[in-house]
Simulated assay, not measured.
Amino acid sequence: MKTKIKSVLTGIALVMGITTNAQTTQIENSLLWEISGKGLAKSSYLYGTVHMMCESDFKITEKTKSAFEKADKLALELDFDDASEVTAMQQSGISKEPLSKIVSTEDYQKLDAFLKQKLGQGAKNFENYTLVSIMSMVMFKSLDCTPKLYELEFFKMAAGRKIETLGLEKINDQMDFLGKSYSSHELINQLNYYDSDYFKRLTAIYNSEALTEIYQMTTNPKFMDAEGKKWMLDIRNKNWAIKMPELMKNESVFFAVGAAHLGGEQGVISLLRKSGYTVKPIMN
């Protein structure tokens, strides 16, 4: 099951981190936040992930491990405990139609040239893959290292403690949000942005826990327009903020979602605070 989950994550989780430009509010430099108040029996925790990082740069801080040990359940964006969801994740990487019939002739030629240069194989070798899967392959090539995934590591930690893993949304919903946010043309044009320099900068900012900078970097306007922002960030954040209270009402939950979802006026931190919860950074 864990091997299946890792292969699936490499196909979709990275792309779900792409978001759009928005006004930001400066908040403390911390990836880990405590949620309390409003009648909660116990504190819960909110952690911002980056979906993939080189193993040599990967770390889970002591404060994060401590918070995780206090939690009764783990909640990720997707439920890796659900076998049907894992199957759906695998299927989401396979295109229902040949790639050459989905994209325009001009975009197909552009993609073909790019893949030959980047991966050493032309677009005809990826006819049955979705553009999301192709983008993840390009990202792995750019990362050029042995990767580790925070979601998978937290899932393994939860399994070791024999605590339940929950999902805040379904993979089919994620793919629907993605389809409403990006056209095939936009996804192909974005392939050039994810080079080794991008990942080096993201890693440095992430490991400094500079949450606002992570938000600003991942919400660059070249990635998405206002309509995309609505689907990739605002609606998903609102859905999660509605679902989280019931999950953490009587038990402590460790929520781990993409770090770009935490910041901003419509971010999860802001939405929970507006709902009456106390959300404060854990600095050490």
Rank of each mutant, 00 (worst) to 15 (best):
E77Q: 11
E97S: 15
L76C: 04
V103E: 08
V103G: 00
I94P: 05
K96T: 11
T87W: 13
D72L: 04
K70H: 10
I102W: 00
S95E: 00
D72M: 05
S95R: 10
I94V: 15
L78T: 04
K73P: 01
D81A: 08
A88Y: 05
L78K: 08
S100E: 12
A83P: 08
D82Y: 09
Q90R: 15
L74H: 03
K70V: 01
I102Q: 14
E77V: 08
M89A: 12
M89D: 01
K96F: 12
K101L: 14
I94S: 09
Q90G: 14
V86L: 15
L99F: 10
S92C: 13
S100G: 08
G93I: 04
S95F: 04
A67M: 09
E69H: 11
E97A: 15
L74E: 03
S92V: 07
L78Q: 02
K73V: 00
D79E: 11
K96Y: 10
D72S: 09
I102M: 09
A67H: 07
G93Y: 00
D72H: 12
K73S: 11
A75P: 03
E77A: 09
L99P: 08
L78C: 08
D79I: 03
Q91C: 03
S95I: 02
P98S: 04
V103W: 03
A83H: 10
S95A: 13
K70S: 05
K70P: 02
L99Y: 03
I94N: 10
E77K: 11
E85I: 05
I94Y: 11
I102F: 05
D79K: 07
F68H: 06
D81I: 00
F80H: 01
I94F: 13
M89C: 14
A88R: 08
I94G: 09
A83E: 15
L78P: 01
E69F: 08
A75E: 02
P98D: 07
A67C: 15
M89W: 01
E85R: 13
A75L: 04
Q91M: 14
S95C: 05
G93K: 03
I102N: 06
E69S: 14
Q91W: 09
S104D: 08
L76G: 02
S92I: 03
A71D: 00
P98A: 01
K96H: 11
A67I: 05
A88T: 08
L78R: 04
F80G: 02
E69A: 14
I102T: 12
S104W: 10
A71P: 02
K101G: 07
S92W: 10
E85H: 12
T87V: 13
F80S: 03
A75G: 06
L74F: 03
A75R: 05
V103P: 06
D81Y: 05
S104M: 09
Q91A: 13
I102H: 04
L76E: 01
F68K: 06
S100R: 15
E69W: 05
A88M: 12
G93H: 02
K73Q: 14
F80K: 02
K70A: 06
S104F: 07
K101Q: 13
V103K: 04
V86Y: 04
K101E: 13
D82R: 10
D72K: 04
D79R: 09
L99D: 05
A67N: 08
A88W: 03
T87C: 12
F80I: 07
